[in-house]
């Protein structure tokens, strides 16, 4: 690919695509909640990287909106991690397991 040189938009997008596919793979195949959480973090990182890359390579416009969007993705990721881990502890306390196939209820 002629355009795949260092510090090009294509290179960033290839990395983001790999991260996105890995995240989907983790969400679909992991049995535990932590594995799925890791997959979601990979997806969010891919999205944030794409925001920043498109913001940098947006020709002729000096603005920082791509980076700000990435910042909001990080905020959403932090909030999501806190809520998911709280749910994880709630599930773990009731069923002593975090296997998503076995978990059916939050309340004991």
């Amino acid at each position: 690919m002629s355009s795949l040189h260092a510090d090009s938009l294509t290179a960033y997008l290839v990395v983001a695509t790999v991260l996105f596919a890995s995240g989907l793979l983790a969400i679909a195949t992991r049995r535990t909640a932590i594995g799925v959480l890791i997959g979601i973090e990979l997806l969010l990182n891919s999205a944030a990287l794409q925001f920043a890359a498109y913001g940098r390579f947006r020709a002729g416009a000096v603005d920082v909106q791509g980076q700000s969007s990435s910042l909001f993705v990080v905020v959403v990721a932090a909030a999501e991690a806190a809520v998911v881990l709280a749910l994880f502890f709630a599930v773990y306390r009731t069923s002593r397991d975090v296997d998503l196939e076995q978990t059916r209820e939050l309340r004991s």
Binding site: S3, S8, L13, F20, A21, L25, F57, A59
Partner: peptide, 27 residues
């Protein structure tokens, strides 16, 4: 999982092609 990852990769590759058409020309 393999199906989902394949779909994700296909969507990403499509995005790459679209970007090559539009964005890199401007770049």
């Amino acid at each position: 999982g393999v199906l989902a990852a394949g779909l994700g990769t296909a969507a990403g590759l499509h995005l790459l092609v679209v970007t090559l058409d539009h964005g890199l020309r401007l770049e």
